[in-house]
Simulated scan of single mutants.
Amino acid sequence: MSAQPRRHSLFRPCIDLHDGQVKQIVGGTLSDSAPESLKTNFVASQSPADFARMYHEHNLEGVHVIKLGKGNDDAARQALAAWPGGLQVGGGITDENARQWLDAGASKVIVTSFLFPNAKFSLERLRRLSSEVGKERLVVDVSCRRRGDSWLVAMNKWQDITDMEVNQDSLDMLSEYCSEFLIHAADVEGLCQGIDQELVSKLGEWVRIPTTYAGGAKDISDLDLVDELSGGRVDLTYGSALDIFGGTLVHFLDLVEKNKAAKARSA
């Protein structure tokens, strides 16, 4: 009996929304208390729906739409309407509004801050939300910031550090209630200075469910690097480096071809 071919890491697209527009920002600079500190790398002339249609055209699954602050609901709904059932949505998701976003066309909802009242993890809230929407339609965003040799989950636009460390135990526990992880390395998000290789390697050891890493990708070879470091268990999102987001380092259509090749190798 021949061995199953191993899975290979894929490119997973994003639509980051700020003030109703598709933008690429430096993750660590987003703050309600100091809006003047925001560093924006790119503001798209195309609508959120335009990006959704482009991703649909190229059959790029697992797209995450992230609402960065208020004023993005209409823009998110435009994207969902352009590809019903093809996009995940996050940003301000709670047990009270999650069902509305699924009804609006989201394939899954993504949650962070709701799970951490006063920056402390609430298993009761996770259970409640998972019960409300179903494990298969819930993504837990454990975006994090490095503290010493550890990574701690960061919430509220990555400004507030929570009491949860990202490690084998916490990811095993969370995966009982969700079907996927999204993990922004907030310290390198938007900087195009390279991925957090140590975190990606650890995620490859720890995760048991589909996982997408975002933060720092700056070269098309980073997709091969993530594949190697994680054993194909972690997918990669590109942001500011991409030509569709005003970047010059990585071409979107090259990543589309990389995905086709990776899927062929994994088949």
Rank of each mutant, 00 (worst) to 15 (best):
Q88K: 10
G91P: 03
I93G: 00
E96K: 12
N97M: 05
R99Q: 13
L102I: 03
A104S: 04
G105A: 09
G105M: 14
A106M: 03
A106N: 06
A106W: 06
K108A: 10
V109N: 00
I110E: 00
I110T: 07
V111H: 03
T112S: 09
T112C: 00
S113K: 01
F114K: 07
F114L: 08
L115S: 08
F116K: 05
P117Y: 09
N118E: 15
A119Y: 10
K120P: 04
S122P: 03
S122K: 05
S122Q: 12
L123R: 13
E124A: 14
E124N: 12
R128Q: 13
L129M: 09
S131C: 12
V133R: 00
G134V: 01
R137T: 09
R137G: 01
L138G: 04
L138K: 05
V139L: 02
V140S: 11
V140E: 14
S143C: 10
C144W: 08
R146E: 08
G148R: 00
S150V: 02
W151I: 01
V153S: 09
A154L: 08
A154K: 10
N156R: 06
D160P: 04
I161P: 07
I161D: 10
M164S: 15
E165T: 15
E165P: 10
Q168G: 07
Q168P: 06
Q168E: 15
S170T: 15
S170Y: 13
L171S: 11
S175N: 15
S175Y: 13
S175C: 11
C178N: 06
S179V: 04
S179H: 06
A185G: 09
D187E: 00
V188M: 02
E189P: 06
E189I: 12
E189V: 10
E189L: 15
E189Y: 06
E189C: 03
E189A: 12
G190M: 06
G190N: 06
C192G: 01
I195L: 00
D196K: 00
E198L: 11
L199P: 02
K202S: 07
K202A: 08
K202R: 09
